[in-house]
Amino acid sequence: MTQDVKEIFGSASGSPGSTPPAALAAKVRTLAPSMTRSMQRVAETVAADPAGCAALTVTGLAELTGTSEATVVRTARVLGYPGYRDLRLALAGLAAQQQSGRAPALTTDIAVDDPIADVVAKLAYDEQQTLADTAAGLDTVQLGAAVTALAGARRVDVYGVGASGLVAQDLTQKLLRIGLIAHAHSDPHLAVTNAVQLKAGDVAIAITHSGSTGDVIEPLRVAFEHGATTVAITGRPDGAVTQYADHILTTSTARESELRPAAMSSRTSQLLVVDCLFIGVAQRTYEQAAPALSASYEALAHRHRR
C-alpha cells in the first residue's frame, strides 16, 4: 500500500478509541481492492467476522488467513492503527455495534429469484451502507479545500463518462443555479479542448470510480498542467487520476454483484460528495447564491405557469 493512501485516510493517533468502528468498516471496504492479495485476506476476514477476529492474537489471525504476522500488522497500519492491539479493540467495538443492531452486518447479494420486497430491502440497505461508508471515509480537509477553490472559481469544468457523466451533469446544474459558470463534459475530445483554455483561478473536477478512466484523466491532466485547481472524485485513492489532482475526495461503494454493477453504488456515493460540494459552496457564497437560486426557481415557476 502506498504512503499516499495512508495520508488520504489518516492514521490513528495512538489512542484505542481514536478511529470509530464505522470508519474501520468503511476503510476495509474502500481500501481492500488496492491491497496486496495477502493483505486483502486479512482485511476481508476482519470485516466479515469482527467479533471472532477480536478474540484472536496476531499469530492466530495470521494462521486463520494463511498470512504472516508481519502482514497482519501491516494491514492494521494501512487501516489507520499503530498496531494490531489497536485494531483488535476497534474490531471489538464494531462487533458490539453489530450485536446491538446499530451497525449492520455485511450485505447479502440480490438473487435472481428474490421477491421484489427483498430486492427493495437489500437495495435500501446497500444504499445506506454506501452513504455511511462514504461519509466515514471522506476527508473533510480535502473537501473544505475543494469548496474554497470552487467558491472563488472563474470557471468550473467537470469531466465524467457513463454513470459518472450523469453525476457531472448533476454537479454543474447545481453550480449554475447559484451563479457559477460550470460545464460538464462527457465527450473526451471536447473535454480536452476546453481544458486547454483553463488557467489559474479555474477549477477542473474529474469523476471516476475506478480512478483509471483515460477519457477523464486526460482532460484533468491538461487542466492541471495549465494551472487550474484540480479535484478528483474517485473510489480509488491510489488510482492514476489522483496524480493530477490537487484535492482527492474518496467515495465508497457497496459490494458489486451480478445484478448490482459498480455503476449503481458508485453513483450513490458520488452524488453525496457532489451534494457536499454544492452545499459548501452555497454556504461560502451565500450572498450571491441565495438570490441566484431564488431567480432560478422563479424562472422555472414562470415557465410552468405559461
Rank of each mutant, 00 (worst) to 15 (best):
residue 132 A to T: 13
residue 250 T to I: 07
residue 90 A to H: 12
residue 201 G to V: 06
residue 146 A to W: 08
residue 149 A to M: 05
residue 65 T to Q: 10
residue 212 S to Q: 14
residue 183 H to S: 07
residue 105 A to Y: 11
residue 126 D to H: 11
residue 84 Y to A: 09
residue 143 L to Q: 07
residue 219 P to S: 00
residue 267 R to S: 15
residue 47 A to Y: 11
residue 188 P to T: 08
residue 83 G to E: 13
residue 211 G to N: 10
residue 209 H to D: 01
residue 275 D to H: 15
residue 167 V to P: 01
residue 176 L to I: 06
residue 52 G to I: 03
residue 31 L to H: 01
residue 250 T to K: 09
residue 9 F to D: 02
residue 90 A to C: 14
residue 22 A to C: 04
residue 245 A to R: 10
residue 17 G to T: 14
residue 33 P to I: 05
residue 39 M to Y: 05
residue 9 F to K: 02
residue 23 A to D: 11
residue 15 S to N: 13
residue 231 V to F: 09
residue 128 Q to V: 00
residue 53 C to F: 11
residue 53 C to N: 07
residue 130 T to A: 12
residue 134 T to A: 02
residue 9 F to E: 05
residue 41 R to A: 09
residue 155 R to S: 01
residue 210 S to M: 07
residue 146 A to Q: 08
residue 222 V to M: 04
residue 159 Y to G: 09
residue 262 A to Y: 08
residue 62 A to N: 02
residue 92 A to Q: 13
residue 108 T to I: 12
residue 195 A to I: 05
residue 136 A to H: 06
residue 266 S to G: 02
residue 59 T to S: 13
residue 150 L to M: 14
residue 33 P to F: 08
residue 19 T to R: 00
residue 185 H to P: 00
residue 148 T to W: 04
residue 63 E to F: 05
residue 202 D to K: 05
residue 231 V to C: 01
residue 170 D to Q: 10
residue 46 V to K: 00
residue 105 A to M: 11
residue 85 R to P: 07
residue 150 L to D: 01
residue 24 L to T: 07
residue 304 H to F: 14
residue 221 R to M: 01
residue 286 Y to I: 12
residue 134 T to P: 05
residue 194 N to P: 01
residue 196 V to W: 11
residue 263 A to W: 06
residue 112 V to N: 03
residue 185 H to N: 11
residue 12 A to W: 12
residue 60 G to V: 06
residue 216 V to A: 15
residue 304 H to D: 13
residue 150 L to P: 08
residue 304 H to R: 15
residue 233 I to N: 01
residue 250 T to P: 03
residue 185 H to E: 10
residue 87 L to W: 09
residue 46 V to Y: 14
residue 162 G to Y: 04
residue 138 L to M: 08
residue 123 L to D: 03
residue 206 A to M: 00
residue 244 Y to D: 12
residue 140 T to K: 13
residue 66 G to I: 02
residue 137 G to V: 15
residue 53 C to T: 10
residue 98 Q to D: 02
residue 33 P to N: 07
residue 204 A to G: 00
residue 116 I to G: 10
residue 127 E to Q: 15
residue 17 G to W: 12
residue 126 D to S: 12
residue 163 A to G: 11
residue 204 A to E: 01
residue 209 H to E: 04
residue 164 S to G: 08
residue 54 A to W: 03
residue 201 G to C: 01
residue 302 H to D: 14
residue 62 A to G: 08
residue 211 G to V: 02
residue 129 Q to D: 14
residue 145 A to C: 10
residue 94 L to M: 13
residue 103 A to H: 15
residue 255 R to W: 09
residue 32 A to Y: 05
residue 131 L to I: 15
residue 270 Q to T: 11
residue 8 I to P: 02
residue 158 V to E: 00
residue 243 Q to V: 15
residue 238 D to W: 00
residue 104 P to G: 07
residue 256 E to I: 12
residue 289 A to Q: 04
residue 93 G to P: 03
residue 182 A to P: 04
